[in-house]
Design a protein around this nucleic acid. Structure first.
Lengths: 207, 207
DNA sequence: CGGAAAACTGTACCCCGGGTGCAGTTTCAT
DNA sequence: ATGAAACTGCACCCGGGGTACAGTTTTCCG
């Protein structure tokens, strides 16, 4: 386990992530990245064959981090209630909180960036992004299916579409946050989505 | 009204739009654009001082076209019913149809592209995009306000957030369409949003 | 401690895309 | 027909991605 090497790669990826989230992938130069990471251009190409290979490592790292966040929040939510519907509602609450906080310190989303900028350029990155989105979607879809068995939906609604809407709301919310200066959008949109779920599944619409 | 010039500019913008929607702004070369538009590089710089000036013209054109589509659909919806709620529901139906069709022939959305790629690079483009999004949002927000006066919402829901969600669903839906190959997402998400509106406002949830 | 491998640095260079400069040519309107 | 507007052609500069490779430092291990 070469530790010096790992630390350097981590510095490169961390620097690249910040810059790319801010300026986009194509607009971010390797020179900027190596400056921010305090290494040399040669050092960069010692670790990665080209910019795209770094992009792949970056997206991989990002999705792993993101997955960890998801898993942790679900675990916390599950520990707070036995009821599947409540668990999902709590999760969405925690998720809205977390995303709002993250948007303040670390605005943007690599998935959205690469989706929109790199889709055709590097098929490997595209595949990883696709897989990442599918994973998020599936986590919600499974929960929705479990819930629907216990609480029959009050509206003929396609659960698959409802799961898709989670992704839609998150990615769209990030876009809105970016277009306007305030960071409240993402969290609020998630909570609005949560209200819809409550309205659809809850047997008692008053609470 | 120099007509030859106008036709050339239109050819440039049309070519640029297709290429940029496909590959992103930074990744699209001026050389590609002038090839696709069948002019020379000199010709390009005769019309536009630089790539950013063309981007501004492009976004302007795009927003005008988009606005026209919105206006037309609202007019058609308004002609089919007297009731504000019905008008909005019909509009969303037409909108979902139109967007699905447009995603097939002309996939992507310049607003999303520029939002994610150019936000900091050219402040003018950023402003135009922001204004464009605000316009869409406001059209829906006005309708929602009118509807809420007649049909008190069945859920304490913030109408502003509900208007934001329209943008969220549209932009997020375009992202989903892009991540996965099929083009049904955008239209379906809009229809799902429409169902939520019907559930919130309609006095009779059965129909 | 010594030495070889791994992890870098430095420098010089190539290519390509954005962009400039400007002289020459076509097209159009009066 | 003529002058302005709408282009073309060509030669060139600069900055960023990327290569090549020799030299230097750090680490690890016997």
């Amino acid at each position: 386990m070469s530790n010096r090497s790992h630390a350097t790669q981590e510095r490169i990826l961390a620097a690249a992530e910040t810059l790319i989230l801010g300026r986009g992938f194509s607009s971010t130069g390797i020179d900027e990245i190596v400056d921010a990471a305090a290494i040399t251009k040669s050092g960069f190409f010692y670790h990665y064959a080209d910019k795209n290979e770094m992009a792949r490592a970056l997206v991989k790292r990002y999705l792993e981090k993101d997955n960890q966040v998801f898993t942790d929040l679900f675990a916390r939510a599950d520990s707070l209630s036995e009821d599947p519907l409540q668990q999902l509602l709590i999760f969405l609450h925690l998720f809205a909180e977390t995303m709002t906080r993250m948007e303040m310190t670390h605005p943007g989303c690599l998935v959205v960036t690469f989706t929109y900028e790199r889709y055709q350029a590097d098929e490997q990155v595209a595949d990883m992004v696709r897989q990442g989105v599918l994973t998020w979607r599936q986590l919600i879809a499974q929960r929705l299916a479990t819930i629907a068995e216990i609480y029959p939906p009050r509206l003929e609604v396609d659960l698959e579409e409802l799961a898709d809407m989670f992704t839609t709301v998150v990615e769209g919310g990030i876009l809105l946050t970016r277009v306007f200066d305030h960071n409240k959008h993402l969290g609020r949109q998630v909570l609005l989505y949560r209200n819809f779920l409550r309205m659809i599944f809850s047997p008692d619409p008053s609470r």
